[in-house]
């Protein structure tokens, strides 16, 4: 029996472009950002790296804003 069709394939956007879920958009102040990487560690999606955010998939939870020690991230209404 060919089991291949029964096996799910890993891919980005298995639930679509989740950026559309966002109410608030995180915006990084590049002058304050020291690229320390704390936001990268704590982002549940893994979409913020070196202060660059993938807005296609960022759900806008705001965790990056909370954990940022430089207070370099603010949340802006979409």
């Amino acid at each position: 029996m060919d089991l291949e069709p029964l096996i799910s394939k890993a891919k980005m956007a298995s639930a679509g472009k989740t950026g559309g879920w966002r109410n608030y958009r995180p915006v990084v102040d590049e002058e304050l950002c020291t690229t320390c990487g704390v936001c990268t560690e704590y982002c549940p999606e893994g979409v913020i790296v070196n202060g660059k955010i993938d807005y296609d998939f960022c759900k806008g939870c705001g965790i990056c804003k909370e954990v940022c020690k430089q207070e370099a991230i603010r949340m802006v209404l979409e």
């Binding site: 891919k11 980005m12 956007a13 298995s14 989740t18 893994g46 993938d54 759900k59």
Partner: peptide, 8 residues
């Protein structure tokens, strides 16, 4: 991968 179904 990003774009999964987890809540915010």
């Amino acid at each position: 991968y990003p774009g999964n179904a987890s809540c915010q």
